[in-house]
């Protein structure tokens, strides 16, 4: 490994935005350690896949341990893994609620806790968490999902203050709808109504997400922490 190789951890890399971000940063010379519950078919010499459920504490700890041993430190973490539940609150099963919070909130927390330690060893790092416009838009039908992402915003803001002393900066990106499996089951009328509430009325593209990540990861962004940046003019 060359002196300059930087190590990034991305969660939820099997498909969707996480898959795109892995390929995007691999192309830009990062070493990427990714995870998802299932195996990945992404094959690249600098890509390392871990089959880990982000909510499994022992699994996350083992992944961090292995990455620490292999690479020493970690410079960036993208907490992309997430699931949604779209249901009227009166029709939302407790099991779904638990799963959404486990994946989105506890997963984000566990990765921040374990990988901030590896960033501390590397002299600092950048964490990008994944929020959503569903939170500021108070989207009906997405109470649990929006609440879990609101928790991620709070985590981001408080962690930013706690970790600043360790030179670890923590921000969040809040995408609008981006065409992935996550939103495939949302009816067209609902989607159109949602887009109509954005200042810029189009779907988000993958590049819109990587653009915000690029900004948070940029060396000159060393005075930026605790921020939640929404796409599409929402918020």
């Amino acid at each position: 490994m060359s002196e300059k190789t930087k190590v990034m951890v991305v969660t939820g890399t099997r498909k969707g935005i996480g898959r795109y971000l892995s390929e995007y940063y691999l192309e830009r010379g990062w070493t990427v350690a990714g995870c998802s519950r299932e195996a990945s078919d992404l094959s690249h010499p600098a890509y390392h896949h871990y089959c880990v459920d982000v909510a499994d504490e022992a699994g996350v700890r083992k992944m961090a341990f292995d990455i620490g041993r292999r690479f020493g430190g970690v410079q960036a973490l993208l907490n992309n893994a997430g699931i949604a539940s779209m249901n009227h609150i009166l029709l939302t099963p407790m099991k779904t609620t638990r799963r959404v919070f486990e994946t989105n909130v506890f997963g984000t927390f566990l990765f921040c806790r374990e990988f901030a330690k590896l960033m501390q060893r590397a002299g600092g790092g950048r964490i990008v968490n994944f929020a959503t416009v569903a939170t500021p838009l108070r989207l009906e039908g997405e109470a649990i999902y929006a609440a879990s992402k609101a928790a991620i915003e709070s985590l981001t803001q408080v962690m930013a203050r706690e970790l600043a002393e360790l030179n670890i900066l923590v921000n969040a990106v809040g995408p609008t709808p981006v065409k992935t499996d996550l939103i495939r089951s949302v009816p067209k009328e609902k989607m159109d109504a949602l887009l109509a509430r954005q200042a810029i009325r189009r779907f988000g593209e993958m590049r819109d997400v990587s653009n915000v990540c690029d900004f948070f990861l940029h060396p000159d962004s060393d005075f930026i922490t605790g921020q939640v940046m929404y796409l599409g003019g929402v918020g």
Binding site: K62, G68, E114, K117, Q120, R121
Partner: peptide, 24 residues
């Protein structure tokens, strides 16, 4: 408190290196 955080991180990593186990 920052000193304690740093100490905990150092110990976890020293233990990992020496005994090959991950502890929190």
């Amino acid at each position: 408190s920052l000193g304690l955080v740093n100490l905990i991180v150092s110990i976890e990593s020293a233990v990992g290196e020496r005994f090959g186990v991950a502890i929190t």
